[in-house]
Amino acid sequence: MESLTITDQTSVEVNQMLRRLIKEHDELRIENPHSIHNLGTALKGKCKVTINGSTGYFTGGFLAGPTLEILGNTGWYTGDNMSDGEIIVHKSTGSNCAPSMMGGTLLVRGNSGSRLGFGMKGGDLIVCGDAGRWAGYMTLGGRIIILGKMGPVIGESMYKGVIHTVDPDVESKIGNNVRVVNITESEKQAVTALFEKYQIDHPVDQFKSVIPLESGRHKYTLFNPTHRQSSDANVNLHHKI
């Protein structure tokens, strides 16, 4: 295994080196990543890159094939626009994890901040810990699986895709233009396969799924007077920030 130690190189220099080495090696290891931003941008091909430490913002952006295994934490925007390959974060990620993700798998063993899966279009995003608010905002596809507790406004205005959650309060936490249903058998099989692949020990029967409205047609309420609603009315708390 080829090993790199980052000293004073820029992220561009490190990424250029990685692109060259990926063609020659099946496995690479990066020591002392110094939490640099933009590490592993637009890497293509098949290779496992292990990063021994934490990384900054935009880790593995536009990833298109390789596996990035980060043994520490990652900053915001991990796996932005990634289309293929794997990102495995052993600890936690900052906010806005996997924005506009198109494909591949992003696994977070720890927690993830708010707005994970923002505008996600495809692929699998798995968070073994808790997730912040506004998860799966306006997704266009893909699968988000959260094993811990979730913040409010889950799946606001999803167009396509699914969020699997075991949060017992999911019904009261969902955003507008989505609904909660039981996980289907085919979804259970897909989740089970992912859990087996990544050695995640968690039952799949308990999952609820947050999915888009059947019609796909969103309704938005800009002005929502509440003064005439009785206390037991179904108060529409739009944009529960």
Binding site: S11, N38, F58, G61, F62, D80, N81, N96, P99, G141
Partner: peptide
């Protein structure tokens, strides 16, 4: 990647650019 025939109001801000400092990094990327 959206349902056919819906009224579409696009995403309001970049999911990977939440401020000018992030824009610096995005442009570097």
């Amino acid at each position: 990647q959206i349902p056919e025939g819906i009224d579409l109001y696009s995403h309001p801000r970049h999911g990977d650019i939440f401020g000018p400092d992030d824009m610096v990094l995005k442009i570097k990327e």
